[in-house]
């Protein structure tokens, strides 16, 4: 008898979720403390230029392609942008997801109609596939890629893909696909603090630091 789909769904909504959240929070807190506690030696030199605001400008500036780069590697920039915006819409503006966040931390905001989120999801999936193809075909990118790059790509794709398939009732019945969707999100949560996916948390701080230190050394942005 196949009550397995429902059993799996019950597990991923219950113990599975608790375990994933626990590892996620543990990892995030651990890594943030580890990074920030490293500290830097006091910079005793006089700042070369007035560096105030340089960190903030770098956060914005690094988000835009430097001159000529958009032409040289359009897929990296456009694909990356499309994917991240699509992921943002899918994760944070789908009503069931908002309901989950509201349940967990008590805050909520209005969502978008399902067909709009659906479009964002499929666009993100396509963008992910395009950037992977680019990574594999471009000799430099392929040389720079290691196992972790492919692992994090897979872990990011799976929740999007299973969510999309579940919504459209493709391949497996909805119950099983929904269970797999939640399970893949839990895998992503578990891996996030310990892989380069941690950039979700470290990106802006790192950019600010780089911008600020460069400003002090005379290359303010």
């Amino acid at each position: 008898m196949s009550s397995t789909a429902m059993d799996l769904l019950t597990w991923v909504r219950g113990p599975g979720f608790v375990i994933a959240v626990a590892i996620f929070l543990f990892g995030i807190v651990l890594r943030l403390i580890e990074i920030y506690s490293l500290g830097r030696k006091p910079d005793l030199a006089v700042a070369r230029t007035e560096s105030r605001g340089s960190g903030g400008r770098t956060i914005l500036g690094r988000s835009l392609p430097p001159e000529g780069m958009l032409k040289r590697s359009p897929i990296t920039y456009i694909g990356g942008y499309i994917f991240h915006i699509g992921l943002f819409i899918t994760v944070l503006l789908f009503e069931p997801h908002i309901e989950l966040i509201r349940n967990l931390i008590g805050i909520s905001w209005p969502g978008l109609p399902s067909p709009v989120v659906d479009a964002a999801a499929i666009i993100s999936i396509i963008a992910l596939i395009v950037v992977l193809a680019n990574r594999i075909t471009d000799p430099v990118k392929r040389f720079l890629s290691n196992f972790e790059d492919y692992l994090t790509w897979t872990l990011t794709l799976l929740p999007l893909l299973t969510g999309y398939l579940a919504y459209h009732h493709l391949f497996l019945n909805y119950t099983l696909m929904l269970a797999l969707h939640i399970l893949t999100v839990e895998l992503l949560l578990v891996a996030l603090p310990f892989t380069k996916l941690f950039h979700t948390f470290s990106l802006f701080a790192a950019r600010w630091y780089n911008g600020d230190i460069s400003g002090r050394k005379g290359v303010a942005s």
Partner: peptide, 23 residues
């Protein structure tokens, strides 16, 4: 349906505390 079955807060708090300790 998109909300967890089991209470998360306590375990989450403990995990965060463990994270602080490990950090």
């Amino acid at each position: 349906l998109s909300v967890p079955n089991d209470p998360v807060t306590l375990v989450a708090g403990a995990a965060a505390a463990a994270g602080v300790a490990a950090g």
